[in-house]
Amino acid sequence: MPLIPQPPPPAGGALLARLHAINAEYGYLPEEELRRAAEELGVPLSQVYSAATFYAAFSFQPRGRHTIHVCLGTACYIRGGEKLLEKLESTLGVRPGETTDDRAFTVETVHCVGSCSMSPVMRVDGDTYGRLRADLLPRILRKYREQEAGGVSDEGM
């Protein structure tokens, strides 16, 4: 028992759920929201901050309108996932973790999205693209650009 009495711990999974909710709403974790979460859940701010910096799913930087996750899990790595990343880097001019100047795309890497049989794989927002090759990327990017421009693309992969 510490000298300063502690509030009861939050319900199981509550802190993670809250961090997910904040990250989903803002695309990152704003300081104010973390302070509020600590207060409302009765969790020390240091604990909230520790968790926020520990888990890869959370970001402290605002993101682009679309997030691209290039898979570098084992299956994808063995079948050339790095090439996709390299092509993407040169096409968009950003490195993993960075966002394009027009804020359209944030590029990230991920260790497996569970579609290993389709490797190499990339995920854009919620859509997963399998059996990829570097030369197929421009078409996929164009689809998201066109969506933004208001045009509808029916280019199913």
Partner: peptide, 8 residues
Amino acid sequence: AIGAAAIG
């Protein structure tokens, strides 16, 4: 021990 949880 202290219960301040100021650092992490």
